[in-house]
Every structure is written in structure tokens, then in C-alpha cells.
Design a binder for these strands. Structure first.
Lengths: 141, 141
DNA sequence: GTATAAAATAGTAACTGTTATTATTTTTAT
DNA sequence: ATAAAAATAATAACAGTTACTATTTTATAC
């Protein structure tokens, strides 16, 4: 079997991810780590981020646009995405476990989980006039 | 302003999309239309599908893996995705409008909508042994 | 400590899904 | 029929991500 070996890059990536609440992209992490390890490659960041997800030490957030984001917060929670600036915020809500039951009643497969993204305007964007959007206006969200 | 002009390709794409319930990808549509218009280009399919979404005549479903899917069913409903075969099924559920209110209580932005995907095994996959998966096993869903 | 095997790395190429560009064709209004 | 606007096919470019390969690092056995 494949045993896991230590790597200082992975440690750095992990602590970087755990040290922030802003749901960074792989590239965000890459730029940060590069300050400490100038030669680190983007592929290493992707590989280790995905490894952390596999190990259950982080989760990956995939929206329908732009790069995936990573979240080291393992407590159950949903996410809020600002339509204008794309910011992702944690919503410290208890999971709505009853949703699966309700959905199950009109589904002939076996539902085991669900994912919810809430959309809207964040505080900053709501109080400032819209300039340009990072999010598509085509209703695809 | 930009006025819309008729195109037989667009009509074909639209009726193709409306004629099926399986949430095809742009490439699925492309392959179908090509039987009628062998020279149609994939770009035309993408352009028109996105146009239909902009016009509110279809919706785009973006999961965190693989290509986007398109759905001409405009009635409000959620979706179920099979973890094993990737099949997407409609769930004819009334929207859970109370979720936005609940989420709003722990969010300092202004929530206006949400998106839910339910995950599990479809009927076919649930009754057959897993072979290989189309979906990532990394918990990213 | 050295030797060895396994795993991780940096650097790069390749890949997937999608959008942009451009010359040509089609549609629509005059 | 003519002309302007829009749509097209074909292709190139693009973003995000993964795969490949030679080299380096880590862990283990002596």
C-alpha cells in the first residue's frame, strides 16, 4: 500500500489553509506558500490540497465558475456566495437533515446527503453601487 | 441595441433541449444536432445554450466536476445526482423558501436565493455493485 | 551513519471544458 | 435587390487542473 511520507510543503499548505477563513483557491495558497518556499510548484499545491480533502482534513467547494476553493473548517456548515464580488462566507447553521427525507419522497434513488449554496449580496457589495460582476448574470446560479 | 435574429441552428438546439429530460451537456446536444446539421460547430452550441439561459428559457447546472448540464424544465425544482453514474434527476419538490430566512439569520449579507443538490445512488446503481465511479471519491461533493 | 526503497517534489506538458476571434454566410429591413 | 446586422463554422486561445518525468527528500534497514 501507499504510505504517506512527511513533506514540509504539505505541512505548510495545511497550516496555511487552517490559518485562514477566506476559502482560498489553489492559486491563493500557492502564492502564499511561495513566500516561504519560492520553488514550490502549483502542481504540488493541487496535489496536497486534494490529498487533504481525501484525508478528510479539508473540503473542496466547487461553484459553476472560476476555480475551486478550499475550506479547512470541518464543522458542518453551509456557504454564502456574494453574486457581485464572489466572496464566500461560512454560515454557522446546523445542517437541515430533514431536507434529505423530504427529497427522498419524490426520488427513487437513495439520497444520502445534500449541498446548499446561498446567494446574494454581501454587506460590502450591498451598500456600494454595482460596478462589474465576478459572477455570471445568466441565472446559472 | 442587439436584436435577435432567427437561426435554424438555434431552433434545433432549443427543441433538442426541450425534447429531453436527461440534462444533456453541450457536447450531448452537439452530437444530436450534428445528425441534422453535420457542419454545426461546438461553439455555436455553447453560444446558443448560454443564450437560452440568458433569455430564461433554460437553466445551467454546474457541478464541481465534468461539463455543465442544461435543463429546459423551467418549473422550480431541485436536482438529484447519482454519485456513481453521474445521472441527474429532477426532484419535483416545492422550493424550500424558508431556508433563505433561516440562513439570513446568521449571514450579514442579503440572501436572495439558494441552490441545492441532493446526492446518493440512483435506483440502477443502488442495485448493482459499484464498478468504477464517474464522481470523485474525495468528499468534494 | 550509509545504503536502499518509496514517496514527494519541481518543472513542464498535456488535458478538459469553454470562450474568443475572424472570415464567411444568413437573416432581416429597406 | 441592396445593405446592415447578426449568426455561423472553423479554429485558436484560454483557465483550471491533472499527468508525466527526472530529481530530491523521507523513512527504513543495515
Amino acid at each position: 500500500m501507499k504510505t504517506l511520507k512527511y513533506s514540509r510543503q504539505r505541512e505548510s499548505i495545511k497550516s496555511c489553509l487552517m490559518g485562514r477563513r477566506d476559502h482560498p483557491t489553489a492559486d491563493d495558497v500557492y502564492l502564499t506558500i511561495r513566500q516561504e518556499y519560492p520553488n514550490i510548484s502549483l502542481g504540488t499545491v493541487y496535489r496536497n490540497l486534494n490529498l487533504l480533502v481525501e484525508l478528510g482534513e479539508a473540503q473542496k467547494l466547487s461553484f459553476g465558475y472560476g476555480p475551486d476553493r478550499f475550506d479547512a473548517d470541518l464543522t458542518p456548515h453551509y456557504h454564502f456566495i456574494c453574486r457581485q464580488c464572489g466572496r464566500v462566507a461560512d454560515l454557522p447553521l446546523m445542517p437541515f437533515s430533514d431536507l434529505d427525507c423530504k427529497a427522498q419522497q419524490c426520488c427513487d434513488g437513495a439520497i444520502d446527503s445534500h449541498l446548499i449554496y446561498f446567494y446574494g449580496l454581501c454587506k460590502a457589495c450591498g451598500s456600494s453601487p454595482a460596478e462589474y460582476g465576478r459572477l455570471p448574470k445568466d441565472g446559472s446560479l
